[in-house]
């Protein structure tokens, strides 16, 4: 049994109150996005629209579609590459430990917590040097590199739960490093791949600092374009909200359908898996 401090109705009252707080912005975002501009006034802010109007979506889509595609070109390779790299690292760091491996792991982990501003100036110089500045491949590289700590962490913690005996008996049967990885570890870690994949997908999709400093105009991912939408022109709140919904849609869908794995990734991110 769990703790019973307060009575049921109060529990539900508090939970519902918090739920309203969490849903309020969503409600506003949604009804604003389906209103025509002239219905977006203070007095009508909370009211349902008189008629549903999708023109703001059309406009937001027109403005954001290229950037949406950029984000897709960015997120897919970056997620796959960083998950593969992370699983390999996690495999080595959990099953093939060598002297100092733990220190190396800790040193790698530190890279996950640094403020990325502190590597931004050399990073930009470097990307310019290798001619990947202002390009999606450049951003992919950045996200793969700075995704190493978190993906390694997640896979290492996952592989730590794989019994060592399995590896040992495989070695008995003559299996080598890669064979074990391919035929034992990868099939065992499909769930870990899903968790890490979702985590990286969400993070890279939502990332802003690298996106805004490394890319410009046509190369920009969706979040930067969304931010620019609220730029210097008259604020068209309906278009902005429609844009926000479009930008949030992929990660929201992932959350809705694979929320369990998302939360697992979230918990794994707190170092102690």
């Amino acid at each position: 049994m769990s703790v019973r401090i307060v009575s049921r109705p109060i529990i539900y009252a508090i939970l519902i109150a918090f739920s309203l707080f969490f849903l309020m912005p969503v409600y506003l975002m949604f009804i604003t996005s389906i209103k025509p501009l002239d219905q977006i006034t203070l007095s009508q802010m909370w009211e349902l629209p008189k008629a549903i109007d999708f023109t703001s979506y059309k406009e937001a889509y027109q403005k954001l579609a290229p950037n949406f595609l950029n984000s897709i070109y960015l997120v897919i390779p970056a997620t796959i590459l960083s998950a593969l790299l992370g699983s390999l690292n996690g495999y080595v760091l959990s099953k093939w430990k060598f002297r100092g491996a733990d220190w190396i792991f800790t040193a790698v982990l530190f890279g996950m917590f640094i403020p990325y501003q502190s590597i931004l100036i050399p990073l930009i110089q470097f990307l310019r040097e290798i001619e990947l500045y202002n390009s999606i491949p450049g951003l992919v590289l950045v996200h793969v590199v700075y995704g190493i700590p978190i993906t390694t962490l997640m896979f290492r913690n996952f592989y730590a739960t794989v019994p060592t005996e399995m590896i040992e008996s495989a070695q008995m049967d003559g299996a080598g490093f890669f064979t074990i990885f391919r035929y034992i570890m990868i099939p065992l870690s499909i769930i870990a791949f899903v968790v890490v994949g979702i985590w990286q997908f969400t993070n890279i999709w939502n990332e802003f600092l690298f996106a805004v400093t490394i890319t410009t105009s046509e190369q920009q991912p969706i979040m930067v374009a969304l931010q620019n939408l609220s730029g210097s022109q008259i604020v068209q709140w309906n278009v902005q909200m429609a844009g926000a919904i479009l930008a949030a849609l992929p990660t929201l869908l992932v959350y809705i359908f694979l929320g369990k794995f998302f939360v697992r990734g979230l918990l794994a991110g707190s170092v102690k898996g």
């Binding site: 796959i80 590459l81 593969l84 790299l85 390999l88 470097f126 040097e129 290798i130 001619e131 590289l141 793969v144 590199v145 391919r182 990868i186």
Partner: peptide
């Protein structure tokens, strides 16, 4: 899978080799 893994490697190695010597990108230019 092997192909992708090897791609990761090529990619990662390319990443560090080009960082150690900036001359590596002359081909790209």
């Amino acid at each position: 899978i092997i192909l992708t893994i090897s791609l990761v490697f090529v990619f990662a190695l390319a990443g560090c080799s080009s960082s150690s010597s900036t001359g590596g990108d002359s081909g790209k230019k």
